[in-house]
Amino acid sequence: MPDFQQLAKNKILLWSLILTITILWGYAWVVMKASLEFMGPFTFSAFRFGTGTLTLFLILFLVRMGPPPKKYWKHLAVIGFLQTAVVFLAVMFALKFVEAGKSSVLLYSMPMWSSLLAAKFLGEKLNKYKIIGLAIGMVGLLTILGWDIWMKQNLQVIFGELLIVFAAVAWGVSNIYYRIHVTNLPQLQVSAWQMLFGTMAIILATVIMEWGEPVAFTPVSIFYVLFTGVFASAICFTVWFIIISYIDMVTATISTLLVPIFGLLLGYLILDEALTASILIGSGLVIIGIIIAQKKMPVRDKIAE
């Protein structure tokens, strides 16, 4: 294995990698939306994560990392079902009705749900920063959805937006489940095996829901599958797991907020999606809320609690 210790010392390289990954993940939202012109949402997810799984297992082979102990397989299956199957089946279906930029912001509300779930199931305290951050983030979500959500918006759009919020909650649940059951496994190994199990569920859903539907294989659609499967899923996650081994999780969580920013910007530039005032204000509130929620309590405040 290469000596990745040098990565931690080279801040310019480290943050260049973070910026590159978040741009690629932001662009992935544009690609996911555009892919619906060529195939169904479940079919695309099956091709994407099938390709991603094969790539990750090739990486595991190259670094000589074998399978995890069998006692962890059921936990990895649960994580794969939640984090890969439920999240991306819900997101891809919702993208039929919701713009890519807005979708990315809604899904990346996940840290708020993780904070609530961590308080409930991990015994982590909801300090004043988390409470304020969650409140601001919820206001931001409502602003994105539209305060007149139940009166003037298209019902399909409302359904899609709520489906993405559901996906964000499922992602948060998978994070808590991971913390409880498999934190002692290598993260690359977890990523590969949970994606394998999740892909199995996605293929099953595709066979049930979209069997026989047309699929257009063109240079563009093949690029979409390869980009999201190889680059946005397998390679980006592999590099990301290396990065988070050398930076604190608060910094890592906050840096992922660049993804919906790039998602909004690229959706506007490439797909000609609207950047309304409510989307911009709501997105800003969500990002501010998550940053505040990740803020550490001063030592004196912790002692006073």
Rank of each mutant, 00 (worst) to 15 (best):
F4N: 07
L7G: 06
L17D: 09
L19M: 14
I23Y: 06
I23A: 08
Y27Q: 07
T43F: 03
A46G: 12
F49R: 04
G52S: 07
L54R: 08
L54V: 12
R64S: 12
P68E: 04
P68H: 03
P69G: 04
K70S: 10
A85G: 10
V87I: 12
L89K: 01
L95Q: 04
A100R: 05
K102N: 01
K102P: 03
S103Y: 00
L107A: 03
S109G: 13
M110V: 10
M110D: 06
M110N: 10
M112Y: 01
E124I: 11
E124H: 12
I131D: 09
I132H: 12
I132R: 13
G133N: 03
L134Y: 06
G140S: 09
L142G: 12
I144F: 02
I144L: 07
W150A: 14
M151T: 13
K152Q: 11
K152N: 15
V157Q: 13
G160R: 00
L163Y: 00
I164M: 01
F166S: 11
A167K: 01
A170E: 01
G172N: 00
S174M: 00
Y177W: 11
Y177L: 04
I180M: 11
H181F: 14
H181M: 13
T183E: 15
L185Y: 09
Q189W: 12
M200F: 08
M200R: 03
I202Y: 01
V207M: 11
V207L: 15
V207Y: 10
I208Y: 12
I208N: 09
I208R: 06
S221P: 02
L226N: 03
F227G: 02
G229T: 03
A232Q: 14
I235L: 14
I242Q: 13
I244R: 05
I247A: 08
V250N: 15
I254L: 07
S255H: 08
V259K: 00
G263M: 05
L266E: 03
Y268M: 13
G282D: 04
G284H: 09
G284L: 05
I288G: 05
I291S: 06
A304W: 08
E305S: 13
